[in-house]
Design a binder for these strands. Structure first.
Lengths: 229, 229
DNA sequence: CGTGGCCTTGATAAAGTTCAAGAGCCGTGG
DNA sequence: CCACGGCTCTTGAACTTTATCAAGGCCACG
């Protein structure tokens, strides 16, 4: 695919004039990262930001003892690292490729110029950051107000969203990574999956396939109305 | 003070032309809330957003069992509720006045028009939202990767920031509210303050005065290098 | 066929919450 | 001016949830 078309396909750049897409094509650079490679580190100086073209990227924090908390997982079309464009100049967390990943890198100054020129780009970015804040609100709510079974139930329901009738979900990340996303450790996650299975909420086949046997029950777990025995 | 001057004093509106400040003065409405009054609820339809003129506002989530997690506390000059302007149309959390509070309320459509016209307003808002995301990153890090003593130590150091030489901090909120901000409950906070006192990190006089006796030690607690006995 | 990553399970320990009771403080109204 | 009621804060004991440490199974890949 031609680069301009790839750019036009990115939601952040939707509604821009062809001319602007061409400008972007001039100022951005393409990079490829292999699975497990770091894209940037918490505290690094940021000279620009990224957009995922293909593959997936996790954004995460590390504790001194090495525990990891995943903040986001971004896929194709999603920007990351933009926070450092508008404040602080340093990345507030780490970024690493979860699989072979292609990204566009866009220099700060060039991008800010574009934002200044084009209100719809500004509004797109505002929408993106607002969405991000909304998700963070949920993450904080989960971490602080729900126990691990509730967080897991919420995640399973989230995975099955929009799939009416189909109660089979496929985890899109390893259980280790899922534990880190849910703010716990693999052992705890494993035990809770076992309990949910024992109590008839779910049934799993293979490492990543989970059948939701009791959606309603899961919703009650997620909202805190019910708890595991 | 005249309204236009009050508007000009708000960081979000810095760099705008006088004309724009006058436009804003036309479209915004002033409201007053008493201590403890709700400004909006999680899930409410949002027709606009707010800026604190005087007083303070807490933004928080509630669990079904009634536990509260404070997400932000905003003071004079700070906008809140903007997330609903750019996505989703509903407020993602609750807002309540911590004391007698005056706010400006700005309608969504009018504000979006202004953003469209003025790139520097857009950039100011982008900076604001980015800062907000950065703070959330810290909040998640604290909740997930630090234990309560570490969070408390970090908060005390935060309060004393910029005050070189002065090791006396004054809590700006009640201990109940502080517990909610740190993602715990008053009992736990109370116990940890007692332990910190016993171990010589701090000393308190009155309900809200705390003297930091061992800044270095607190920093080690905050970063996880050290733990309470 | 062996090695390493991922996942599971058990025993133990730590951190935090819940429940209960009581002390201190403040503003209101008698 | 004092007493009452309410709120905040503290402390103790029991309990719950989660993490830690240790070991073993499974599977894919070289």
């Amino acid at each position: 695919m031609k680069m301009v078309d790839q750019i036009a396909a990115i939601p952040l750049f939707r509604g821009l004039a062809r001319k602007q897409h061409e400008d972007l094509a001039m100022i951005l650079m393409e990079q490829v990262f292999k699975r497990g490679n770091s894209i940037f580190f918490d505290g690094d100086e940021a000279s620009g930001f990224y957009v995922v073209v293909s593959g997936r990227v996790k954004i995460f924090k590390l504790s001194p003892e090495g525990k990891e908390q995943i903040l986001h997982i971004f896929g194709p079309g999603e920007p990351f690292g933009e926070v450092a464009v508008f404040t602080g100049r340093r990345f507030p967390a780490n970024a690493e490729a979860l699989e072979e990943t292609r990204v566009f890198f866009i220099l700060r100054a060039a991008f800010v110029d574009l934002v200044r020129q084009d209100p719809s780009l500004a509004l797109n970015m505002l929408a993106e950051l607002s969405m991000r804040l909304r998700r963070f609100t949920l993450l904080v709510e989960n971490l602080s107000l729900k126990e691990v079974p509730g967080r897991l139930a919420a995640y399973l329901l989230y995975l099955s969203e929009g799939k009416k009738g189909i109660n089979e979900v496929v985890l899109d990340i390893s259980k280790n990574q899922l534990a880190s996303l849910l703010g716990t450790i693999p052992e705890t996650l494993s035990r809770i999956l076992a309990r949910m299975t024992r109590e008839g909420f779910i049934q799993s086949s293979g490492q990543r396939q989970i059948r939701l046997l009791d959606r309603q029950g899961l919703e009650e777990l997620a909202s805190g109305e019910r708890r595991l025995a």
